[in-house]
């Protein structure tokens, strides 16, 4: 079973890495990193913070593009062009197909992020060398932990893409749903806490129905904001390792449950 999952993952990964649009995404990320070097001088003191901000933004935004375009394309092309007939005519179970594809997508993103991380480290090191006095709060450890969580966030998003690809028939619907999930997931926490603070300070209580809906949504959609350590990395703030552990476990659990659901649904699906 592992062998089949791994074989499909490798094929998916090669197919993704050799896609031309990957170069476009690389170019975009490199542009942001170059912009970072150019812009750094405009700031007064917190150059380290601005540099980390821009680097992490480049990595995470490139990751989003990767998921929304390359990952969705890799999932959808199989079904659109009926390559899935070929794959499923080999002794793959539907579940193995889902996991193989998912691991393949993770490999694509891992590869792209590793390349970008290399460039990103070079950028930080060069800005560091240009303005050595303004990197007081900077810590490589926190930066790498933040990068890991950016990756974890994209792994979650990939699981969402795989899930929606398993239940819908067109890539456009997958794109819309996974984008919506991301936007809701990243902003949900802010809205929930804002409403809570409103309810606490003012006597106005947001309507019970709204609260209830948000509660339900928070169970369905992962809280992407929990994986966002950009501010911590930017200022080299101390990390709370138990918090990171819980977040990590939360993400992994969400992925596993979602993919199991996806394979359950995929088992019932027919491929014309």
């Amino acid at each position: 079973m592992m062998q089949r999952v791994w074989a499909l993952a490798l094929v998916t990964c090669k197919e993704g890495i050799r896609d031309r649009s990957l170069y476009g995404i690389f170019l975009f990320a490199l542009f942001v990193l170059g912009l970072n070097i150019a812009v750094a001088g405009f700031f007064m003191r917190d150059l380290g913070k601005v540099t980390v901000d821009m680097n992490l933004a480049a990595l995470s935004f490139a990751g989003l593009l990767l998921v929304f375009f390359i990952a969705i394309n890799l999932m959808a092309k199989d079904i659109d062009k009926k390559t899935i007939h070929l794959v499923l005519s080999k002794p793959f179970s539907r579940g193995e197909y889902i996991w193989g594809k998912y691991v393949g997508l993770l490999l694509v993103i891992l590869f792209a992020q590793a390349v970008l991380l290399l460039f990103s480290c070079a950028t930080i090191a060069s800005v560091h060398a240009m303005y050595p006095n303004y990197f007081a709060g900077f810590s490589w450890l926190v930066f790498f932990v933040a990068v890991f969580f950016v990756y974890l966030q994209q792994a979650l998003l990939c699981a969402i893409v795989v899930f929606f690809s398993a239940i819908t028939s067109t890539s456009f619907i997958t794109l819309i749903f996974s984008m919506a999930s991301y936007i809701v997931g990243i902003s949900l926490e802010e809205v929930v806490f804002y409403l809570r603070s409103q309810a606490a300070t003012q006597e106005v209580v947001a309507s019970a129905a709204l609260q209830r809906t948000l509660e339900v949504v928070s169970w369905l959609v992962p809280n992407f904001a929990a994986f966002d350590l950009k501010l911590e990395a930017a200022h080299g703030l101390a990390l709370d390792w138990t918090r990171l552990g819980v977040t990590c476990g939360y993400g992994v659990m969400y992925i596993v449950i979602l993919l199991l659901l996806a394979s359950l649904i995929f088992k019932r699906r027919e491929f014309n």
Partner: peptide, 14 residues
């Protein structure tokens, strides 16, 4: 703006 930043709060602040 904290919501609209979509996870890029630091960058938006910059």
């Amino acid at each position: 703006s904290r919501v609209l930043a979509c996870g890029y709060k630091g960058l938006l602040a910059d």
